[in-house]
């Protein structure tokens, strides 16, 4: 833990300027992840810029029939919003599956997707970690991999000593739901405002595991837009974890089923919320039978790489995620709509 300056700027523009001006400045939202990382010495910023009171805390209807969610809306508020619960059950369910009531009261829509990927070695500064200290190696490979990735890992990897390896997973439940909903992210940066598809916000470790998202330094999420779902669409979030509450996902599934369309996003399997586009393509237009879903997942998981490790590794995630998708889609297609 090291001392840092704390800034509470007057408005969003000043906040962006303040962070952009210093390489080791960071934004503070709810702080549910950053404060832990500060205490552990993983995050070592010089300046912490509090934006919690600056961005919008409103959820507003948009002209296209969707919703705009201000970045300061808390996870609790979003989960309780009637429009969200009625129109986007997958999002409300994902929010309520995350963390605890106390944490959800603090966590924000702008901050939650930007929590760091999780790994026991990332949070332990006494062990090598390419994400924390580039080039030192990856302690997770061959270590405790139960919560680690099986998708999006370079085929040549994993190699514990390789300088770019990272097999951590992104832990946000909400982000998996936003990925399946084709949300758009409103971003303000030193160069101005831009909009990007939520599905493009997060990145695979690639050649730079220190970066979890594509945001440039100083860019701030100001709002998240939800487009309307097709008429008659049904959606659900299913999280599978090691205990009934307050645990990260082993795997999770966000699913939207509409006429002629199945959308799937997976959590707990990759460095980012994983939109299962290959499976969606296989299912497009065809009958959504159990057999078809299973086949689609087989295609999706062709490149999946189980990670061996202490405590049995994480190979179980591959059958588990398929089973979870099958059960979730079955529930969505078999229940009588309310």
């Amino acid at each position: 833990m090291k001392p840092f300056a704390f800034a509470r700027p007057a408005d969003v523009a000043e906040a962006v300027r303040t962070v952009a001006a210093e390489p080791d400045a960071v934004f503070l939202g709810g702080g549910t992840n950053l404060v832990d990382l500060l205490k552990l010495g993983v995050a070592r910023p010089d300046r912490v810029v509090d934006v919690r009171r600056l961005t919008s805390r409103e959820i507003t209807d948009t002209a296209d029939g969707g919703l705009r969610i201000g970045a300061a809306v808390t996870n609790s508020e979003l989960a309780a919003d009637r429009r969200v619960r009625e129109r986007y059950p997958v999002l409300a369910q994902a929010l309520l599956a995350g963390a605890t009531g106390q944490l959800r009261n603090l966590a924000t829509v702008g901050g939650n997707p930007l929590q760091r990927t999780r790994c026991v070695y990332f949070t332990d500064v006494s062990t090598p970690c390419n994400k924390r200290e580039p080039g030192t190696g990856c302690s997770a490979v061959g270590g405790y991999t139960r919560y680690h990735a099986v998708l999006g890992v370079d085929a040549a990897l994993p190699d514990a000593s390789a300088p770019k390896t990272c097999i951590a997973t992104h832990p946000s439940d909400m982000a998996v739901a936003l990925a399946v909903l084709d949300a758009q992210v409103q971003v303000l940066g030193p160069g101005g405002a831009r909009t990007m598809p939520f599905g493009e916000l997060h990145r695979l470790p690639g050649d730079d595991p220190t970066r979890d998202t594509v945001l440039e330094h100083g860019e701030l999420i100001t709002a998240v837009d939800l487009p309307p779902l097709p008429a008659g669409a049904r959606s659900a979030y299913r999280k599978v974890r090691d205990r009934a509450s307050y645990a990260f996902a082993l795997v999770s599934v966000a699913a939207v089923v509409a006429d002629g369309e199945v959308r799937l996003a997976l959590g707990g399997v990759a460095h980012k919320p994983w939109r299962a586009t290959r499976a969606e393509e296989v299912l497009a237009g065809g009958p959504v039978t159990e057999h078809a879903v299973r086949h689609a997942m087989d295609v999706e998981l062709t490149a999946a790489q189980p990670q061996p490790g202490i405590d049995g590794g994480n190979g179980f995630k591959i059958p588990l995620v398929t089973r979870t998708v099958v059960a979730t889609v079955r529930d969505l297609t078999s229940e009588v709509p309310a």
């Binding site: 062990t127 270590g143 405790y144 205990r243 009934a244 509450s245 990260f248 202490i310 405590d311």
Partner: peptide, 27 residues
Amino acid sequence: ENGVWDPRIGQAATHDLAEYHVTVNAD
């Protein structure tokens, strides 16, 4: 509860309450 021992480095990989799970009310 599972103190997963990492014999490569000689410590429990699960060494905080986020990773070392104890039963919660919902269980």
